[in-house]
Design a protein around this nucleic acid. Structure first.
Lengths: 361, 361
DNA sequence: AACGAAAGTGAATCACCGC
DNA sequence: TGCGGTGATTCACTTTCGT
């Protein structure tokens, strides 16, 4: 589909997040990253859904009003995010213990399906000065799909590759945004109080989008999401209420040089690779009818037929079906089970023949 | 005050958690640790790559009709906990992304004051077998005071001493409960599906109680809370609905020999060794996608991808895998094989970048 | 007895395409 | 839409088995 025809791509939209979201077309973005305000002191700016002002009576009522107002605000912008998100898209939230529980419940109540919570472990957190609590050394991200049965993209191989060929875990160790990466004004003061590190967004966007996808950030702030999206060859839409932040973010993002396209290909997952039927190996003569296949331990031997089926004892069928039959297993990946017995008696995994052909395009 | 005069101390009370809590006097316990059902909402069975079945938590006690039912249950037992908790006491909850957001919101709505969320990082979590999500490698604890202005106990010095004289952080690295610590029946099957490690409770109880304090666990299960409380010289009250679990927990707790009061030494939790994946260098910008790597003799050149994999001819994979492939060697240490080709054409060994980052550990 | 290989296991919301 | 076939997918640690 012609995603993006009506979308204000690669721009920072200055305005109220909910109103601006309402102007975007439905099911139009592949991923959303949201770092909403969580300082409940901002409640003065928040209104009830009916736009009445919150009127504090006593402590008990005040506390309830605070959370209720925050919850109403959260559900309003999350509802719009869900409308704008494609059915196969995913959404990320980040928060601390002050607000992240409210965010998670709102997500679940609105029909999002949580896929993971992810812990950003800070290598250099601020110490606890008064010694009255544990050092608050992490923030929590929530990753969610549009709904329970929605398909979604998870670049498993890319994440595994980022982590030295081990599955990426749900706890990420990443430093705070400091030093040259931190935006500052002329006086050297930090421009934005909660600028997120680019390394965090690098991992987020690499995990769930592909080049060309559209990434939305409804609370753009200093623009980290846009900067990393641009560097990784993704399109973005940023929404920011504060004109000063919006201008700084736009300057920052435009100064980014995207990576070479060739460097963005990364590790294709096996699911995405072109499917090569076993028959092609026989047609091309890499495997000949009559050749013997065996498993790693040479426990079973099968003979290749001219139609690329296998024969092993009385079992007949595909490399997968016969592999499953001899092992008495419910299923089997024949590609990684069977080996060709070569002329010199050594074994070569079928999957290696397939990889050779895959290189042809 | 004469805490404990009316309390059923150092016993396991068999019964419904809410009813049993209602029979306890108000403001009578110093700390509560609660490990409620997680409401996992599992569908169908999950097979490992070797076709064996994952032994999931599908017990009746973990099934709820919907979130509203779970929320109502949660608020009911938390309300009783708050009544039973002393004004200067604190409460710990543990959960996963399935339920922990509901727990946190219930806490806040009932007037508890969250002090920290704490991440239990598992050293040996179960992998994600289908490659569809991040490895779920942690659980979340919430630590809360009775109310916003309540005094509470935090044994700052003890926690600091447990952590090599650095402030204890909010992320804890502790192994699963396995091996000899795991309770088993005669057939060798685990007695309880979710037995928590004693190291976790050791840290929890040491952080917020003193010897002689009363610790309550409304979902005692296998009895870890009672066992650690007894070993640390704390009194306890356990509530457990299942008579089988309750009996096993009581046996377990009675078999514990309390520590000498003098010998309340630190947790022997294994220290985490530093392991820096190559991907971290890419995320942090020390190596950029598109950069060229070469070996010492400049025989082979590879290009870095955004996911930190290498591309060299048709070979793709980790720095180790591609290093091995080009040399046609069975293995290769990519850190000491590949060099970055720097702007001026000179080479810099990857391992030197890693050593720079290593200091952060 | 010692050593190495193989099997077992842990709170899990764990495919997808084509007909 | 439902069904069937293809084929993708695991880390750290403990225990047991075999030589």
């Amino acid at each position: 589909m012609g995603a993006g025809l009506d979308l204000p791509l690669d721009k920072v939209l200055v305005g109220d997040c909910i109103e601006t979201l309402r102007a975007l077309p439905p099911a139009s973005v592949h991923a959303i990253f949201a770092d909403p305000p969580y300082n409940l002191q901002l409640r003065g700016e928040l209104l009830r859904p009916n736009h009445s002002r919150v009127d504090a009576v006593d402590d008990e009522w005040d506390r309830f009003a605070d959370f209720a107002t925050y919850d109403a605000f959260t559900r309003e912008w999350l509802t719009e995010c869900r409308r704008v998100l494609r059915k196969d898209g995913t959404l990320w939230l980040i928060g601390s213990y002050h607000n992240v529980f409210r965010l998670g419940v709102a997500l679940q109540d609105l029909g999002f399906w949580i896929l993971n919570d992810v812990i950003w472990r800070k290598s250099n957190p601020m110490p606890n000065f008064r010694g009255r609590r544990f050092t608050n050394a992490h923030e929590t991200l929530i990753w969610a799909a549009h709904s329970q049965d929605a398909k979604y993209r998870f670049n498993y191989a890319a994440m595994k590759s980022l982590n030295d060929d081990l599955q990426m875990r749900s706890d990420w160790f990443i430093p705070l945004c400091t030093g040259a990466e931190r935006l500052r004004d002329e006086a050297g003061r930090k421009l934005h109080p909660t600028q997120k590190p680019e390394a965090l967004l690098h991992r987020v966007l690499l995990s769930c989008t592909k080049p060309g996808d559209v990434v939305l950030d409804p609370f753009l702030g200093s623009g980290t999401t846009g900067a990393v999206a641009r560097r990784l060859g993704r399109r973005f839409i940023g929404i920011e209420r504060d004109p000063g932040y919006a201008a700084a973010a736009e300057r920052r993002i435009l100064s980014i040089t995207p990576h070479d396209e060739a460097a963005l290909v990364g590790t294709p997952s096996k699911r995405e690779q072109k499917r090569i039927p076993f028959g092609v190996l026989v047609e091309r003569g890499l495997i000949a009818p009559g050749d013997a296949l065996t498993d790693r331990h040479r426990r079973w031997t099968a003979t290749v037929q001219a139609d690329a089926s296998l024969a092993c004892g009385t079992a007949r069928g595909s490399i997968h079906a016969v592999g499953a039959a001899v092992q008495e297993a419910p299923s089997c990946n024949g590609w990684t089970f069977w080996h060709l017995v070569q002329r010199d008696g050594s074994l070569r995994l079928l999957d290696l023949f397939r990889q050779e052909l895959g290189g042809e395009g």
